[in-house]
Simulated assay, not measured.
Amino acid sequence: MTNNSRSVSILLVDDDEINNFISIKLIKKALVSSEIKACLNGKFAIDELKKLKEAPSPGLPDYILLDINMPLMNGWEFLDEYKRLDIDPEGKSKIYIISSSVFSNDINRAKSYRPLVKDFISKPLNIEKIRELFEAEKLA
């Protein structure tokens, strides 16, 4: 997968700066051609996506990796606002919930957001999970 001809753009939405640092390192190791931007909560991410939507290029990210539990605007509120604002009418961005939650109600709630949310991935991220995610996407 390291032989991608174009760069993959990723928006990481998580309030844990240490976790973001580690996730970015792992993603860059798994996907050499990747542009990653981190936002510390859903509100900042919505603001960033509104700017990217208006930009001529490169536009919206290919992937949004979204935590659930964050201050200011959590992952569920982010998804509701994302849909309400119709940020991505063509469905360019693939959204994955990345959470340390093991509660079945969170996993089921994530499924209720399909097809907007592609899958629920448990933290911590590791190289194998990242490769699986992007390999599965490549085959889809």
Score class of each variant (00 low, 15 high):
residue 1 M to W: 04
residue 3 N to W: 04
residue 5 S to R: 13
residue 6 R to Y: 05
residue 7 S to V: 14
residue 9 S to Y: 02
residue 9 S to V: 04
residue 10 I to R: 07
residue 11 L to G: 03
residue 13 V to M: 07
residue 13 V to Q: 02
residue 14 D to H: 05
residue 14 D to W: 06
residue 15 D to M: 08
residue 16 D to R: 01
residue 19 N to Y: 13
residue 19 N to S: 12
residue 20 N to I: 05
residue 21 F to H: 09
residue 22 I to S: 01
residue 25 K to M: 15
residue 27 I to Q: 03
residue 28 K to V: 07
residue 28 K to M: 05
residue 29 K to Q: 13
residue 30 A to T: 10
residue 35 E to V: 11
residue 35 E to P: 00
residue 35 E to S: 13
residue 40 L to Y: 07
residue 41 N to S: 07
residue 42 G to W: 00
residue 43 K to T: 04
residue 43 K to Y: 05
residue 44 F to R: 03
residue 44 F to Q: 10
residue 45 A to G: 06
residue 46 I to Y: 00
residue 52 L to H: 05
residue 52 L to V: 02
residue 52 L to E: 14
residue 53 K to V: 11
residue 53 K to F: 08
residue 54 E to V: 13
residue 56 P to N: 15
residue 57 S to R: 10
residue 59 G to H: 09
residue 60 L to Q: 04
residue 61 P to E: 15
residue 62 D to Y: 03
residue 64 I to M: 08
residue 65 L to V: 05
residue 68 I to W: 03
residue 71 P to A: 11
residue 73 M to D: 02
residue 75 G to A: 03
residue 77 E to S: 11
residue 77 E to M: 04
residue 78 F to L: 12
residue 79 L to K: 02
residue 79 L to E: 04
residue 81 E to R: 02
residue 82 Y to E: 04
residue 83 K to H: 06
residue 84 R to E: 14
residue 85 L to C: 02
residue 86 D to M: 03
residue 87 I to C: 05
residue 87 I to T: 01
residue 89 P to G: 08
residue 90 E to F: 09
residue 90 E to N: 09
residue 90 E to V: 10
residue 91 G to D: 11
residue 91 G to Q: 09
residue 96 Y to Q: 12
residue 96 Y to E: 07
residue 99 S to A: 06
residue 100 S to G: 15
residue 100 S to F: 12
residue 102 V to G: 10
residue 102 V to S: 12
residue 102 V to R: 15
residue 103 F to V: 05
residue 105 N to F: 13
residue 105 N to Q: 07
residue 106 D to Q: 02
residue 109 R to L: 14
residue 109 R to W: 06
residue 111 K to Y: 08
residue 113 Y to A: 12
residue 114 R to F: 15
residue 114 R to G: 13
residue 114 R to P: 12
residue 115 P to I: 08
residue 116 L to C: 06
residue 116 L to E: 03
residue 118 K to I: 15
residue 118 K to E: 14
residue 122 S to Y: 11
residue 125 L to M: 14
residue 127 I to K: 09
residue 128 E to Y: 06
residue 129 K to E: 12
residue 130 I to A: 03
residue 130 I to V: 13
residue 131 R to G: 12
residue 132 E to I: 05
residue 135 E to Q: 14
residue 136 A to S: 15
residue 137 E to I: 13
residue 138 K to P: 01
residue 139 L to P: 03
residue 139 L to N: 14
residue 139 L to K: 14
residue 140 A to I: 11
